Simulated scan of single mutants.
Amino acid sequence: MDGTEQSTTRQAPGTSSGPSAAWDPVRYLRFAGERARPFAELVTRIAAEAPATVVDLGCGEGALTASLAQRWPGARVIGVDSSAAMLAAAAAHAVPGRIEFVAGDVRDWQPPGPVDVLVSNAVLHWVPGHEELMARWAGRLAPGGELAVQVPDNFRSPTHTLLADLCRSPRWSPQLAGVAPAADAVLEPAGYYDVLTAAGLAADVWETTYVHVLTGPDPVLAWVRSTTFRPVLAQLRADDGAEFTAAYAAALREAYPQRPDGTTLLPFRRIFAVGSRPS
């Protein structure tokens, strides 16, 4: 799922938080196809042929987690998330004895035993110091096990810098300075390589920039409403939220102008890292 910072309303997928920033599965799934592409690219690079246990940390509404059971028909697949709304949606994908979804915070969840494949897709950018968390996860891998993570790396893109500038502006700083997106929420690719190799894993790290073709009114705003913009709005009363949204939408329209054919292009950079423990 597409930073948990210190505020209790900045909820990561799979991390605990207050109800004001609750995840909305319907809104999140508006761009389900675009959000699924990085997951598919990540899983393609996992070499495991017949893992017994596969865990998806920050599983969200479960559709992508269920696809792991299709990739590995003999595996027991476990999805972990802290959002009650997301887990309720994920229940539709559960298969007794094959696919299960459990409540848990990715920051402290512990598997009952060694894991053959551990996946975390678009979650770790919400967790400060997540390199330490990755090292702990690496320690839970079985011999020959693999850890696969994907994080968005668009924190210096207009979607985030414009939002951060507004949050820190004189008008909004007293309410929102603490929830402004951080520019250093993720490491550079070499940083993830170092994390994995320091944990004793063979590392495969790469990056991809997707160019998403969006349509409709204010489509970039619609994209960020279910992710980056969500914890900001959670801090505002309805009237302030409308004022802030109008200013942010105007800035996004200038940064991501609509094209003559009615489409809007959203470049989106993502970082992938797969670490393999020796057999």
Rank of each mutant, 00 (worst) to 15 (best):
D108V: 14
W72S: 01
S169D: 03
V117A: 03
E207L: 05
E131D: 15
E132R: 15
R277C: 03
V119W: 04
T159A: 07
A251S: 08
I271R: 00
R253K: 12
R171Y: 08
Q150M: 08
R107H: 12
Q235D: 09
F272H: 09
V43P: 00
L124K: 00
A246F: 08
T53C: 07
V119K: 02
W137N: 04
G60R: 00
A50C: 02
E34I: 07
D204Q: 13
T53I: 13
V127Y: 01
Q235C: 13
D24K: 09
L147P: 00
V211A: 10
E5N: 14
T44F: 07
V205R: 00
A250Q: 13
A135I: 10
V127L: 10
G241N: 08
A249F: 05
Y193W: 14
S67I: 05
T197L: 09
A203E: 04
P219M: 06
I99H: 01
R30I: 07
A69R: 07
V211N: 10
A84K: 14
A177D: 12
E132T: 14
P143K: 10
F155T: 05
A63C: 09
R98A: 14
G104Q: 03
A203K: 04
R277W: 03
T53A: 11
V55H: 01
V115W: 02
V77W: 02
A142Y: 03
P96V: 10
L162V: 06
A69P: 02
P112W: 13
P111G: 08
E34N: 10
R136A: 14
G262C: 15
F244M: 13
M134N: 04
P231D: 05
S169E: 05
H125S: 09
T209R: 14
G104I: 03
R35Q: 11
Q235M: 14
A91H: 11
H125G: 07
G113P: 11
S16N: 12
H160V: 05
P111F: 08
A250I: 10
R10D: 00
L118E: 04
L221E: 00
A234G: 15
P128S: 09
F101S: 01
R98V: 14
F229I: 02
A251W: 01
G14I: 01
V195H: 01
I46Q: 02
Q258S: 12
T208P: 01
P13C: 12
L201E: 01
A63H: 10
A222K: 03
G178M: 06
A203R: 03
E254S: 12
A22H: 04
P114Y: 06
A69V: 05
P143T: 09
Y28I: 06
V149I: 13
R225P: 02
V149H: 05
T245Q: 13
P96M: 09
E146Q: 15
D239H: 13
P96G: 10
P257S: 11
E243F: 06
Y193C: 11
D105A: 15
R76T: 05
Q258F: 04
P143R: 09
H93G: 04
E243K: 10
V151F: 04
A94H: 08
V117C: 03
A40F: 09
R140S: 09
